[in-house]
Design a protein around this nucleic acid. Structure first.
Lengths: 349, 349
DNA sequence: AGCTTTTATGCAAACGTTTGCGCAAATTTT
DNA sequence: AAAATTTGCGCAAACGTTTGCATAAAAGCT
């Protein structure tokens, strides 16, 4: 059986209260004598005492645990920020319960309920993103909460996001600057924060440069690999296939690459590619990938900081929205069409 | 404030005991009348009751939480198996506290202590791997435990691992079959389970094929990217550089690729490469990567199953060691030297 | 109608902590 | 030497559950 305060109390010949107090370093406040303190510390050490955090949490209504809700930990992007969050949380004395939602709103709801039940002190959530009543509820209940990666414009809530519009705009503009006009976008889950902003950025750039919109070029339905694969097949099969594809996530990009390799065409010679999310291996791909890089470290670190601030101060300070700037990393997956050259996609079947 | 059993009891005009019993579906055992049951269920629903799992855990000594200890969640391999574990655990009604150890034994120790304090029902640990007294202690205390990915040969403990020897052997043998004899290995953290087996597999294959060992060709000190980078620089600078490099992890491979690209040489023309760990993007690298693929899904799933079996049955059944077979995925990162052709590494500086 | 059995529920202890309050002994003040 | 203060620690309640035991009411039996 686990050793408890009681065991120590017995061994040291004092009461549990006293034990609790010295083990919590409240000796001055309660004027415990140096010798009893010593006695107790020794006993605790000898018995190899380990505080029961459940009992503690129950009594204190604090567990020093934060709940992290993420759509898919196996996605490199999420994995990376999870790691950063873990590190910083641990450094501040918090541990992490990690939950996966599989981009499903009901799972998200269930996981949050569960985490509350388990007494987490606060949340960092990367929401699925189509609805947010549950977050309003949490805020009404004064549950410390910060949204990460995705937020909601019409909600005054702690969040740290990336300027997705700017990222997509830059990517698209770069494509345009390289002479592309037939630019497709493979979007992720429609109506989510990140997706919408990315699509808007794409549209904005197109519009600002007077490029007419081809509705066939806006495709896709979720952030997964299969989506990238299928939509690429579709795009390549069009009568007037695009000369460039802009993908809205790394997993989509993976699917795109699979499709492209199956079709026996090459990047960037036959089709150009720009990706949101910059993966580690991007420089070493067959076509070193031009991509929008999100400041993952910063995102994770800031999210933790925001949450812990709220946990500590518990002030009713205004909620903060922090938006970080993404960066376009230019490599070699886009063909320059500006110089006079043919703009055909040679497709080999 | 959170609503408790007491609140429901008041609203329904019964005692907390009764409420607890119906909410736990013990109505038959305690013969609660259908009407009180109904009353209580209604009240609970109306008040939006959410059980306090801390209190529950304290009383029951069960939290339905399992602790996952992993060296580095941002590593694609670990991220992937973490995801699998999460999914299966959740399906069985368990949630996951995830801890990172950064390949540091002291952090591992601390994290395990912490998790016990938090009352996890059991552990899945991917150990750092150099020492195991703490695991013996856990087993003596009858804490359900399964080791994943790495184990200890002289320890009778639940574990699911991959046959690293076989994987490395196959990889090396393949290299040999392609005519390579100057084969280097960049190892990970020495004295760890996986690393040793991989090095042994490499040595075994060399030996079985009568290839003399060049001690300059065994380099490396941890599983990180920087290690791959530095050691590749070293290897390429040798008087008789290897014609092939076998890396013992995906992150190392990343470093190798960085070094290689800096040196302006090509895979597989100038140097061949085989990697342990098959990453998603491997097929689309400049040189589609030949790699040893570990059965990640199976590993995660089996680990969870083993643990939950132990949690449920609590039988003193023998501990099981499950070893899964890896697979060599042959792509195009190895040059065939068998056909008469020069075996030089042309290095451009 | 009295006795036994069954039915339906409540009491209270326990899980391991923390902490306000109280109080005896020791010390200081008058 | 009595009164006042300080020192050092223990009592007991509380956090929200679960569950063995007790028990009052209802039902069944003779």
């Amino acid at each position: 059986m686990a050793v408890t305060l009681n065991d120590i109390a017995n061994k040291a010949g004092v009461s549990v209260s006293t034990v609790s107090r010295v083990l919590n370093h409240k000796t001055k406040k309660y004027r415990i004598s140096a010798e009893t303190e010593n006695l107790i510390v020794q006993a605790a050490k000898k018995l190899n005492y380990r505080p029961n955090q459940l009992a503690r949490g129950l009594r204190l209504k604090k567990t020093h645990t934060i709940g992290l809700v993420v759509p898919d930990i196996s996605n490199p992007f999420f994995a990376h920020v999870t790691r950063i969050i873990q590190t910083h949380a641990y450094k501040s004395g918090y541990s992490l319960i990690v939950c996966n939602t599989d981009e499903d709103i009901n799972t998200e709801l269930a996981q949050i309920e569960l985490l509350i039940s388990k007494g987490v002190d606060g949340f960092i959530v990367m929401p699925v993103g189509t609805t947010y009543v549950h977050f309003e509820k949490l805020m009404n209940d004064d549950v410390p909460l910060v949204l990460l990666d995705r937020s909601f414009d019409n909600l005054n809530i702690n969040s740290v996001v990336v300027d997705n519009y700017a990222g997509a705009y830059k990517a698209t503009e770069y494509l345009i600057s390289m002479g592309h006009a037939r630019i497709a976008i493979i979007q992720g889950l429609p109506d989510t924060y990140t997706n919408n902003a990315r699509v808007q950025g794409y549209l904005g750039a197109l519009n600002d440069h007077g490029i007419a919109l081809n509705s066939n070029y806006i495709v896709g339905k979720d952030f997964r690999k299969e989506n990238g694969y299928i939509e690429t097949k579709f795009l390549l099969g069009l009568e007037d296939p695009p000369t460039a594809i802009f993908t809205t996530s790394d997993l989509i990009t993976l699917g795109v690459l699979e499709a492209i390799s199956e079709e026996n065409i090459r990047v960037p010679e036959d089709i150009s590619l720009v990706s949101f999310d910059d993966i580690d291996f991007a420089p070493f791909l067959l076509a070193p990938l031009t991509a929008v890089r999100q400041p993952k470290e910063m995102m994770g670190e800031v999210a933790v900081k925001l949450l812990i601030d709220e946990l500590k101060l518990k002030k009713d300070h205004d909620h903060r929205k922090i938006v970080l700037k993404p960066e376009l990393i230019i490599r070699n997956s886009v063909k320059n069409l500006s110089s006079p050259s043919e703009i055909t996609v040679s497709k080999v079947d």
